[in-house]
């Protein structure tokens, strides 16, 4: 991209470039906090239409709690996305992890602590496999994780005999959803904690800076002494680990494992990740934007369901949101390029 040469004069002096810090312009503020305003408006509208169901504390708290699983999947997803890699196996990792817990705990009576450890280790292993194929054989991450994800789905169906397995140890359920703090299930706080960790990682660690450079310019990163392949593998392991953790939380949320559950998480997670990249820190995948987007999307869907619109609205909403979000982020990026 050529920086226009007409900007400088013969003696090398450069015209002052007008401030582009998005935080200090009206458009900047609109971009950064627009989604929060729209979200608030959505809550007001649904609240006015259905005051005695939508705006009840039980609805709000169960919504915050039950969607924590989706928040964790989305947070996992934005890590490799920042490094410019896709991980579409993450939802299948989640399902497999929850199924590993159910099978071991319910059918083989393995103590729940061990089950969780094994489930998380499975996630790490999948991340290593993804990273191996992507960085060693230079295969597009989308293809590798699509294949691995489908493979994992097969494994899930196999070990569960394609059945939902219920009866997971109540202690897990207790510490995920039953116990409440300030009236909200604990899993909400787990998700927020992970959000804080990812935010800290992205903003205040050398690793986070390196992930960003690898994603924005792999060659620049390499020439800056960053071991780009190692960073990419690390990101894929992190996303699979968070996928597995989401699986643990899923098993705790419903006390069971459903071999098909992954399907309904992948697209919403992508939609939230891309929508999140248009807010809070516009133009960049960011954990607060992603978390906010999950709840924004869920609010919209829940509200529409309460209005009596049938369940297919979920697909319409998530699918539409993904395309709109990607278009928006393209527009944000494109406008910056032109400036």
């Amino acid at each position: 991209m050529a920086v226009s040469s007409d900007r400088h004069t013969v003696d090398g002096a450069v015209e002052p470039v007008r401030g582009r810090d998005p935080g200090h312009t009206v458009i900047g503020y609109a971009e950064q906090y627009g989604l929060i305003v729209v979200w608030a408006a959505l809550i007001v509208v649904f609240g006015a239409l259905k005051p005695d169901t939508f705006l009840t504390w039980s609805n709000v708290s169960s919504l915050l709690g039950s969607q924590a699983v989706l928040v964790v999947v989305t947070l996992g997803l934005i890590i490799p996305l920042t490094a410019n890699d896709f991980d579409v196996s993450i939802a299948n990792v989640m399902t497999l992890s929850s199924m590993v817990i159910a099978v071991l705990n319910v059918l083989h009576h393995v103590p729940i602590g061990w089950c969780m450890l094994i489930a998380l280790a499975t996630g790490v292993l999948v991340g290593l496999v993804n990273g191996f194929f992507i960085t060693v054989f230079r295969i597009n991450s989308l293809i590798v994780t699509l294949g691995v994800g489908t493979f994992l789905h097969g494994v899930t169906l196999w070990i569960s005999d394609s059945m939902t397995i219920s009866g997971v140890a109540p202690v897990l359920v207790k510490y995920v959803i039953v116990t409440r703090l300030l009236g909200i299930p604990l899993e909400f706080y787990y998700a927020i904690f992970i959000c804080v960790v990812v935010w800290y990682l992205f903003e205040y660690t050398a690793v986070g800076r390196r992930i960003l450079f690898v994603g924005r310019g792999r060659e620049v990163a390499r020439l800056s002494g960053i071991r780009a392949d190692r960073v990419r593998r690390g990101c894929l392991v992190a996303s699979s680990f968070l996928g597995a953790l989401a699986g643990v939380m899923y098993a705790g949320t419903i006390g069971a494992a459903d071999p098909q559950s992954g399907l309904s998480y992948l697209l919403p997670a992508f939609a939230a990740a891309f929508l999140g990249a248009t807010t809070i820190v516009p133009g960049r995948f960011n954990p607060w934007g992603a978390t906010l987007s999950v709840y924004f999307l869920v609010t919209g869907i829940t509200g529409l369901t309460f209005l009596g619109i049938r369940t297919f609205v979920q697909e319409l909403f998530y699918g539409g949101a993904l395309v709109v979000a990607v278009t928006l982020s393209q527009l944000v990026g494109g406008r910056e390029e032109r400036l």
């Binding site: 800076r209 960003l212 800056s224």
Partner: peptide
């Protein structure tokens, strides 16, 4: 190859010294 155009001058300048000049887990 030299710098990431969409990131700031500060980001680009500091990237090679992140772990030598700063504590990498608390920038």
């Amino acid at each position: 190859a030299g710098a990431v155009a969409s990131l700031t001058v500060a980001d680009n300048i500091t990237v090679p010294v992140l772990s030598t000049e700063y504590s990498p887990w608390m920038l």
